[in-house]
Write a protein that binds this DNA or RNA. Structure first.
Lengths: 209, 209
DNA sequence: GCTTGACAAAAGTGCTATAATTGTAAATTA
DNA sequence: TAATTTACAATTATAGCACTTTTGTCAAGC
């Protein structure tokens, strides 16, 4: 009697969720391509929908408003960088200082090369996305800090919760600061910041009986 | 024979320098009063000069351009806060952690109450002064960091030059970050940041043979 | 050394009309 | 059911235009 194994699921997620994510990704990707040409203020929601091959109403239904879409976009682009940062940290779990240095360097290098980041920083006036990482950056900050916190918690399970939160928050704040007003070459900036954080970090990452 | 002591100088500075400083102060003070009413974008150089009782050309001769004037203004206002920070630090030279906590708390509390800071942060569009502490804040950052560095060098003569510079730079970056996007109440934010910096600080402030 | 008066170039203002965009709601299609 | 189409009011952008203000720099005068 031959046992037929169940067909391997293409994804663990039910169709509805997968379809929704696909939709969101398609829309956000379309926005990114449009942003290669002109600033956010000059891109309409209709264009984004058209570029994604979707109706405008689907876009609104999914994201609510233009501002929410922009917010989500910035966070999703940020996720690209944060992924890289977390990978860098995971490779240095035995050495917190090296982890911070590598994570920050990866971030600053990637951001410096990214044309989207350059565009975002260049655009001065209203209607752009710049405020989302300066004066109205609470959502981005909270999101990035929370995600980074999770990664640190996973890598250093002995660390105290408050230390994790403080370190993640500070890491993100400094990272934003360095991106908007560079200090040095990415590697030097990262090394300096890591040197600064490491004494605290090393205390925190060790279990305190 | 009676020795007549030399008349006490009103100031150690020669007249030319003193007059120049008086002129600058008068103009900058006039600008501050005008800023109580309306945002910077709606204040002309002619108004500033008139309010200071000086001709427009004198203003231009002294500051060069509108942007330079704004830059100088922001730095001079920043000096008010930095004075307070330095005093707070000087009162805790024996305890670097308390020094950082007190300095940051003084700054954040004062900034939170200051109507000028509120106006500066509120004003979104172009022509305002906000970019001077976000995307174009290099001058402010360099100035504040250098001044804070001097104060630290004076208070902790054993510290290494690189440590001073790194700490001052980081302090200023975090302070700006906290002002533009608050984390907590000033006292809590200051305590957290001080806790984070203190392990490094304490190593640095002690002479390393 | 400061002020006055003058100036061109640039930037802002008020106004109009027109067009585009946002956000929402319905009816429609697959 | 989920997305599309169509429709719509309200807000906002765009363009043209004349006009005013402002910036930045002169030279002349006190």
């Amino acid at each position: 009697m031959v046992v037929v194994p169940p067909a391997k699921q293409a994804s663990a997620k039910p169709y509805r969720v997968a379809a929704r994510e696909l939709l969101r990704d398609t829309l956000l990707d379309a926005a990114r391509e449009l942003l290669a040409d002109r600033p956010w203020a000059q891109i309409s929601m209709a264009e984004v929908a058209r570029a994604a091959g979707v109706s405008r109403q689907t876009l609104y239904k999914e994201f609510g408003s233009r501002d929410e879409f922009a917010q989500t976009f910035v966070i999703r682009e940020g996720a690209r960088f944060l992924d890289a940062v977390e990978r860098a940290i995971e490779q240095h779990l035995d050495d917190p200082r090296a982890a911070v240095a590598a994570g920050l360097e990866v971030f600053l290098s990637a951001a410096a090369e990214d044309p989207l980041v350059a565009l975002l920083l260049a655009d001065d006036g209203t209607g752009g996305m710049l405020p989302l990482i300066t004066t109205q950056s609470r959502p981005v900050l909270l999101w990035a800090s929370a995600r980074l916190g999770e990664a640190m918690r996973a890598g250093w399970p002995h660390a105290q919760e408050e230390d994790i939160e403080l370190l993640a928050d500070t890491f993100v704040r400094l990272a934003i600061s360095y991106v908007t007003m560079p200090r040095d070459a990415p590697s030097q900036t990262a090394a300096a910041a890591a040197a600064l954080l490491s004494p605290y970090l090393e205390r925190a990452m060790v279990s305190r009986v």
